[in-house]
Simulated assay, not measured.
Amino acid sequence: METVTIRPPNVPLRDTISSKFDIYAAYQRILKNEEISTPLAAILALTELIENSDAGTMFELVKALNDGAAELRGRTTNPISLNAGCELFIAFVTLSTHNSTTFSSLKQELVRQGQNYAAEALTYRKKIAELAVGFIKDGSVILTHSYSRVVMQTLLLAHERKRISVFVTEARPRGLGIKTAEALTAAGVPSTVILDSAVAYVMEKVDFVLVGSEAVVESGGLINAVGSSQIAIIARAANKPFYALAESCKFHRLFPLSQYDLPTHNSNILSFSRPSQSKLSMPVTTPAVEFPKPIKELTDNELLNGSHKITQEQISKNNPDVDYTRPDLISLVFSDVGSLTPEGVSQYLVGMFSGSE
């Protein structure tokens, strides 16, 4: 491989990406294929960036990849899965040994290997499904949350081989549990949609919980559709196993300590709106010796009109899309690299990003 050239810090780098290439447009185009997950779309977009890059050294190429990843993150409201794919591909470029004799052939090899990895990763769901089905007993009652392609493939495979019944949460605010229930019903799987608030009510009927993932983080915890964390807490209280399914391309070097450490959290989430001053505020000047006057009671018409009306859109904007499930609440993570404990995920990630995997 060509010797890596490091430029002095005072020498500006030239633009190493063709001005005609829009990595975000490439990413959105790739995502139109429903079989391709977010991290794989990010990897394929980065391979296209390499094809369109004018970089002449490894230093310039890595900078172009990091700039491209930053642009994708900046234009995506939930960059967690995307980050996992970008990190994985950039780590492969920088940590792996490459045997190309010229830098041009190196770039071609990186593109080819990125595309081959994405094609292979499309088979991971089947591999995970085969692994997870071995843990599903005949006659199992399963609780799942929201919609996950790998969970769907696992449930459909289990239905072919065993008798199963599935409770599916509604999964607000996006309501993707409805999509899961419709697909299961169409395939002949007995399924029932339950309210998110009915999880504790139904848990006694459940044998285990099975969820997908947006990312599995370095602590061994899980980032998934909001509501996953409270389901895991209820499952632990009821002594029911909580299983997560995740392709290894969703393993993410992130170490959140709480919900508020997630990249998706911002000041608008769960914020308090100020009541209307004209109808709900206390009088500004109240004699110290008198008790404040009671807040005016609003009529039904006043509650339903004007700024007092609360819409589902407002609720959705004020609430998170994903949450973090602690590793101590997770029984096992089924992945294409095996069935792992949360501690095993941590060890795998350390090895993967140190170049030893």
Results as ranks from 00 to 15, higher is better:
residue 273 S to G: 05
residue 242 F to R: 03
residue 219 S to A: 03
residue 207 D to G: 10
residue 250 K to D: 02
residue 238 A to K: 14
residue 211 V to T: 06
residue 281 S to Y: 15
residue 255 F to Q: 07
residue 193 V to N: 08
residue 259 Q to R: 02
residue 223 I to A: 04
residue 266 N to D: 14
residue 213 S to F: 12
residue 215 A to P: 07
residue 287 P to F: 04
residue 259 Q to F: 09
residue 245 L to D: 03
residue 271 S to N: 06
residue 210 L to R: 04
residue 243 Y to M: 00
residue 236 R to N: 14
residue 263 P to Q: 13
residue 218 E to D: 08
residue 188 G to F: 14
residue 242 F to T: 00
residue 273 S to Y: 01
residue 231 I to Y: 03
residue 200 A to M: 10
residue 214 E to M: 04
residue 226 V to Y: 04
residue 188 G to A: 01
residue 219 S to P: 10
residue 271 S to Y: 00
residue 245 L to V: 13
residue 236 R to Q: 14
residue 249 C to N: 15
residue 259 Q to M: 09
residue 255 F to P: 11
residue 274 R to W: 00
residue 248 S to C: 11
residue 262 L to K: 00
residue 231 I to S: 06
residue 195 L to S: 09
residue 245 L to H: 13
residue 285 T to I: 15
residue 264 T to F: 05
residue 221 G to H: 01
residue 195 L to H: 04
residue 269 I to R: 04
residue 229 S to F: 03
residue 269 I to F: 07
residue 199 V to G: 09
residue 232 A to L: 08
residue 241 P to H: 04
residue 214 E to R: 06
residue 189 V to C: 10
residue 251 F to R: 10
residue 246 A to S: 14
residue 225 A to Y: 03
residue 269 I to E: 02
residue 246 A to Q: 05
residue 206 V to N: 08
residue 287 P to C: 05
residue 199 V to N: 09
residue 197 S to G: 08
residue 282 M to C: 04
residue 270 L to R: 03
residue 202 V to N: 11
residue 227 G to P: 07
residue 199 V to P: 00
residue 278 S to F: 06
residue 202 V to H: 08
residue 244 A to R: 09
residue 195 L to D: 04
residue 199 V to F: 13
residue 241 P to I: 09
residue 205 K to C: 07
residue 191 S to T: 13
residue 229 S to N: 12
residue 241 P to T: 05
residue 194 I to W: 13
residue 218 E to G: 10
residue 247 E to F: 14
residue 193 V to R: 11
residue 215 A to E: 01
residue 209 V to T: 10
residue 187 A to W: 00
residue 216 V to R: 07
residue 277 Q to E: 15
residue 256 P to M: 09
residue 260 Y to N: 03
residue 197 S to Q: 05
residue 279 K to N: 11
residue 223 I to W: 05
residue 243 Y to F: 13
residue 239 N to C: 08
residue 263 P to M: 07
residue 267 S to A: 04
residue 244 A to N: 07
residue 191 S to W: 00
residue 214 E to H: 11
residue 225 A to L: 09
residue 239 N to V: 06
residue 196 D to K: 11
residue 257 L to T: 08
residue 261 D to R: 02
residue 246 A to G: 14
residue 287 P to W: 03
residue 253 R to H: 08
residue 256 P to I: 05
residue 249 C to W: 15
residue 284 V to N: 09
residue 258 S to W: 14
residue 234 I to L: 15
residue 201 Y to H: 12
residue 275 P to G: 07
residue 193 V to Q: 02
residue 214 E to C: 13
residue 232 A to R: 10
residue 249 C to G: 09
residue 275 P to R: 01
residue 200 A to S: 14
residue 229 S to R: 06
residue 216 V to L: 05
